[in-house]
């Protein structure tokens, strides 16, 4: 599961690199389709403010 920190700015860069198009960017929300996520972590890596955190 991914935790979205409160400092996320919803810029959508995570969605831009998600190879499976699993992230829906709203004006002030991110919706992850975790079910189909293969855990490549690209979304976590590219975030300009490191707002995505992997939770075990």
């Amino acid at each position: 599961m991914k935790k979205i920190s409160e400092w996320c700015m919803y810029c959508g860069e995570c969605a831009g690199v998600c190879p499976r198009s699993l992230i829906e960017v709203h004006e002030t929300d991110l919706i992850f389709n975790e079910e189909n996520c293969k855990d490549c972590k690209l979304c976590i890596q590219v975030c300009p403010v490191h707002a995505l955190i992997k939770e075990e």
Partner: peptide
């Protein structure tokens, strides 16, 4: 925008590789 999903819905590859996406 860079988070484009519309093209992908229709089968176009618009996802960027991290080496091609500036943060």
């Amino acid at each position: 925008g860079p988070e484009s999903r519309i093209g992908r819905f229709a089968g176009l590859k618009t996802a960027a590789k991290p080496k091609n996406m500036e943060s």
